[in-house]
């Protein structure tokens, strides 16, 4: 240790760093800290690993006790997830066995043979997933468009009572879903919006609007007004200036906002549970009700969850730099 104070570190320092941080002790603590963080991250992700594992197990592997860590992966869970099946008749089994012997058996047939069930059509889950995609996609688009316009107005114009209005918009996001669900349920029943795509799209649009306005206002505030003013002086109309100057510069902010709206609409459960029953039901409540039906097909549930989570994880990873402002309503800059 005394050596360090006399001779300094073994390698010359070519970065901006405080003297005490280059001491061997600091360097050791720093590496130790990195190892601890990595270990913690792995520990936290264990449940997700296990779920991913379960998705590739067979029905019997899932329920083996103690749980299996080494197993032969199959796509059974995914097939079960996406299909409706029926018990195969004995006659059909012989036919499939014959085909298996001659070697021309498709993936689905092979699974059918192995599990003793035959695919009769696509499962509900496919419809639910389609509903989720439509509702989350369209509502995100609407929230971002409406949110952008409102955010632009709040950012650039002298809106009377601006602070109060912005607070009102934020407060709607803090409102517990349970408080508004009952009247919304009644309102939707009256208006015929119950269990319709349009009803859910409007609902998610409104719920995301407050976030979209706050986030986008933060991003637009950072675009200097001088560019637009120059364009206005040059004879552009306000709308042209927005389209050609503000919009391109706000693109990253718009992308980040869209992701947050998408994640919310994609994951939302409470409203979907209470305001849809069949036609417009999305994936989250349907994954939850899978439990109720017949024998619990855990691998199918895990497969469904995994398939449902992967897009979110990818999106989160791609836009990790914007996460911060999203969760804090843009209150925190970088």
């Amino acid at each position: 240790m005394s050596d360090f104070y006399e001779t300094g570190p073994s390698k010359p320092v070519t970065e901006s760093i405080r003297v005490d941080k280059v001491s061997p002790r600091s360097r050791r603590i720093h590496s130790l800290r990195a190892i601890v963080v990595i270990a913690l991250a792995i520990f936290l992700l264990i449940p997700i690993f296990i779920m991913a594992m379960t998705a590739f197990k067979t029905r019997s592997d899932v329920v083996s006790s103690p749980p299996k860590t080494v197993f032969e992966p199959t796509l059974e869970g995914f097939v079960f997830l996406f299909t409706e099946r029926a018990i195969i008749t004995p006659g059909r089994i012989t036919k499939l066995q014959e085909a298996a012997e001659s070697g021309d058996l498709g993936l689905f047939d092979r699974i059918a043979l192995k599990s003793g069930q035959e695919i009769t059509g696509p499962s509900d889950y496919v419809t639910r997933l389609k509903n989720s995609l439509i509702i989350a996609g369209v509502s995100t688009l609407l929230s971002v468009i409406l949110g952008f316009f409102a955010a632009y107005a709040f950012s650039r114009f002298n809106v009377p009572g601006k602070d109060d209005l912005m607070f009102f918009i934020l407060s709607t996001r803090m409102l517990p879903a349970v408080v508004v669900t009952i009247p919304l349920f009644l309102m939707y029943r009256q208006l015929g919006l119950h269990d319709t795509h349009i009803g859910m799209i409007l609902l998610y649009t409104v719920f995301n609007l407050s976030l979209a306005v706050w986030l986008l206002k933060g991003f637009i505030d950072e675009i200097p007004t001088e560019y637009e003013e120059a364009a206005l002086v040059d004879g552009y109309t306000r709308m042209q200036a927005i389209r050609k100057i503000v919009l391109p510069q706000a693109m990253t902010g718009i992308a980040a906002t869209a992701v947050f709206c998408l994640i919310f609409a994609w994951n939302e459960y409470a409203f979907a549970l209470m305001l849809t029953s069949n036609t417009a039901r999305t994936a989250p409540p349907s994954i939850a009700t899978m439990l109720g039906r017949g024998g619990i097909e855990w691998s199918a549930i895990a497969a469904g969850s995994l398939g449902f989570l992967i897009p979110v994880v990818i999106v989160v990873f791609l836009l990790r730099d914007y996460l911060l402002r999203g969760v804090t309503f843009g209150a925190v800059r970088k």
């Binding site: 449940p47 994954i287 549930i301 969850s305 449902f308 989570l309």
Partner: peptide, 14 residues
Amino acid sequence: MLSPVVVGMFWKLM
């Protein structure tokens, strides 16, 4: 970032 209800499901398995 995950859906709470889905998280609930696989923790039920856990």
